[in-house]
Write a protein that binds this DNA or RNA. Structure first.
Lengths: 211, 211
DNA sequence: ACTCCGGATAGCCGATCGGATGATGCCGGG
DNA sequence: CCCGGCATCATCCGATCGGCTATCCGGAGT
């Protein structure tokens, strides 16, 4: 069998979380934490230097590029590591973006240590590891129609959340009021609502808008 | 000078965070982690047994009572410990509730370890320790009028976010449509908006509603 | 080449909303 | 004891919204 020690790099902007994962992971005989990074740039550098088997990636990295983008970057490196996303949220959008970026697994931070260890080992073996709640969510969404809002519609949603009326949105976007209404109708259909307030709530819930 | 070792109990539902704080705090000569708890009941039990000087309290504890309520509980114990809130969010509502519950400090989880240590020591000495961002926010809000929505108005907001019309809300709440409109008007005034969509967005932003 | 989709536009109409104004009853703090 | 906040209800009215039906254009994909 290949490597006996799985080399792990941690990417998380929270010192506390890094310390926690390091403490837990290091205590495992077959797992070594060979590096840490607090942001995207650091992550790329550290991964390039240490050539880990697995990268534990947080999705929210503070200012610069997020975890999804960083996942892309490290996956584009020569002999790229497997990326296991370890984050707080399990939004559909987050999961999809991460998987799309080349993540091999998705775990939540409230997972018990055991699950974390198993996930790291599985990921290192090339397996795809999803937290139960994430897997469930994915299946749910896969069954139901995927509501993908267009860029323009997102703009509308943004203005909507600011409480603008159709007329005001029209002025803001330099289009006619009819166009705004048209977009809104499409948004309602896609989000499965029929009021502006509901659209805003659903948009925020699905992370189409950020509060 | 009193105790040379400051006894600390951790309350957080995330194993990873507990491990992280424990690893960081334990490495300090003058700080001892004498207990951990993952939920409110456990917290009260552990604090009662270990009589710590400081409790590091997360505000979101999963299912049962939250961190604010738990803070009240441990502060009501005989010879209560100081409570230092250590959480992810710095919402005005969260801060106020925590302080009201008897918390002596408020730190964010992305704080550097140094700051955490200083906060623990300060809290143990009875000082009030606020994260800079939290302090700033408090001053801001203290200057501007505090918009406190009534319980009934929160109910209205909840239904609003579900996209219900005034008539439907009225039926749901067993009141007349006029009453609903009245509440809405008050909500608009308090939140500084003039549309339902804006109200929902602002309510979520101010954490009056949870997405 | 042809189709599908996002984006833009138009008009119609009933339902709803938001603002203004005013009134009543209850409770708790000053 | 009186005031203020909360909750309740009522009416009026102009502005807006949401649903419906149709058309047009340009780019991406088959």
């Amino acid at each position: 069998m290949g490597e006996q020690h799985i080399r792990v790099v941690l990417v998380d902007d929270h010192p506390v979380v890094r310390a926690g994962v390091r403490a837990l992971v290091s205590a495992q005989d077959d797992l070594d934490v060979v590096g840490e990074a607090a942001d995207s740039a650091e992550a790329v550098a550290v991964v390039g230097e240490t050539k880990p088997d697995v990268v534990l990636m947080d999705l929210s990295l503070g200012d610069g590029p997020g975890g999804a983008e960083t996942t892309r970057l490290v996956r584009d490196l020569p002999s790229p590591p497997q990326v296991l996303v370890l984050t707080t949220y399990d939004t559909e959008a987050d999961v999809l973006e991460a998987v799309d970026a080349g993540a091999a697994g998705y775990l939540l931070k409230d997972a018990p240590p055991d699950e974390l260890f198993r996930a790291i080992r599985g990921t290192a073996r090339g397996e795809t590891v999803l937290a139960p709640s994430v897997a469930t969510r994915l299946l749910q969404r896969a069954a139901s129609p995927a509501p993908k809002v267009s860029p323009r519609e997102v703009e509308i949603l943004r203005l909507l959340a600011r409480g603008l009326g159709n007329k005001e949105m029209a002025r803001e976007l330099l289009v006619s009021e009819a166009t705004v209404k048209s977009h809104l109708s499409h948004i309602y259909t896609k989000l499965g609502v029929d009021t502006r307030a509901g659209a805003v709530a659903t948009a925020i819930e699905r992370r189409i808008l950020r509060p």
